[in-house]
């Protein structure tokens, strides 16, 4: 089984539109949306959710105000500034006249548990934190594993790992040959979790200074984890000169350009109608995506052969 991950470094270059278009072209595949912060693939694939599953992130420290003696040891050791003085519940409460207690800001708590190690009163416990949900859905284009991280939560990398595990399990169950994954923007924790061990990363860029700058960083990241990269220049004709610069960079870096997709109002139209491009257009962008998929298939088949040859 192979995994094709679509990433970009820079956000908004067209990852999700391209994944949806490829979803309509590829056969025998499972789809995964690893942009767990701001998942959008479901808006184009119209999934029927088959299972909803809870995702627990790292535990969060909770201080029992009844046991807290207000010594402040927890605040001294917390390196994330997550321990603060609790607001007194009632101004004129009788039992604790002005007693100082502490509480944890769950937004800042990283779940390290150091406070529980030092609390002399045993007042701090680590509690499980429901940080989001992941779903298995049926779509007209095959099964989709997707997720939604809770607002302002951390551990997106851990949720990405869960989505990938489930996608792999589904692919094995269904004898699917390929997993196509919509990746998150950036090069941080969720991208690293999306990237490790995939067969091929398709880096979608745009012909702008920012697109190029971010492409270079994401290509370096893929190199760091020894993942081969193919490049897609989206909306390449909006700034032909910048596209040529990117092509020159790819040539120097030994990267294959899998496709160059022209600007086409059909892409925005497909988006507004909530369908994959291929389902509603035979325009210039759709043909370019088709050509890109053909070249990606050749590359994936070649890689599969090489892999079998080695094993």
């Amino acid at each position: 089984m192979q995994e094709l991950l679509v990433i970009s470094g820079k956000g908004g270059t067209g990852k999700t539109s391209i994944v949806a278009a490829l979803a309509a072209l590829a056969e025998d595949k499972v789809l995964a949306d690893c942009d767990v912060d701001a998942a959008d693939l479901h808006l184009l694939l119209r999934p029927e959710v088959e299972s909803v599953n809870e995702f627990y992130g790292s535990d969060k420290a909770v201080i029992d105000p009844g046991l807290c003696t207000g010594c402040g040891r927890c605040r001294e050791v917390c390196r994330f500034g997550a321990v603060m003085e609790a607001k007194p519940e009632k101004e004129n409460s009788e039992d604790d006249s002005g007693k100082l207690v502490f509480q944890v800001d769950s937004l800042e708590c990283e779940g390290c548990g150091v406070c529980t190690l030092v609390c002399p009163a045993g007042a701090i416990a680590m509690q499980p934190n429901l940080a989001g949900y992941w779903y298995i859905s049926a779509t007209p284009y095959g099964p989709l594993v997707h997720a939604q991280l809770g607002l302002a939560e951390e551990n997106s990398g851990k949720l990405v790992t869960k989505v990938r595990q489930e996608a792999r399990r589904l692919a094995e169950e269904n004898n699917a040959r390929l997993i196509i994954t919509d990746g998150p923007p950036g090069i941080g924790c969720p991208v690293i979790s999306s990237l490790t061990g995939v067969t091929l990363a398709l880096a979608v860029t745009e012909p702008t200074v920012a697109g190029r700058h971010d492409l270079e960083r994401v290509v370096k990241l893929a190199g760091h984890f020894r993942v081969p990269v193919a490049v897609c220049i989206n909306k390449y004709d909006l700034a032909p000169e910048k596209s040529r610069e990117i092509e020159a960079y790819c040539y120097d870096a030994g990267l294959t350009i899998a496709g160059k997709i022209p600007f086409d109002a059909d892409v925005a139209r497909a988006l507004v109608n909530g369908v994959p491009l291929m389902a509603c257009s035979r325009g210039v962008a759709a043909s370019a995506v088709q050509a890109m998929w053909d070249s990606l298939m050749v590359r994936l088949e070649r890689m599969a052969k090489e892999q079998n040859g080695h094993s």
Binding site: G11, G12, D37, A38, L107, L149, L151, A152, E153, E154, S156, P184, P185, G186, G188, P190
Partner: peptide, 10 residues
């Protein structure tokens, strides 16, 4: 700010 809604954005 970075895109998204998780810890780096916060």
């Amino acid at each position: 700010a970075p895109p998204g809604t998780s810890c780096p954005v916060v």
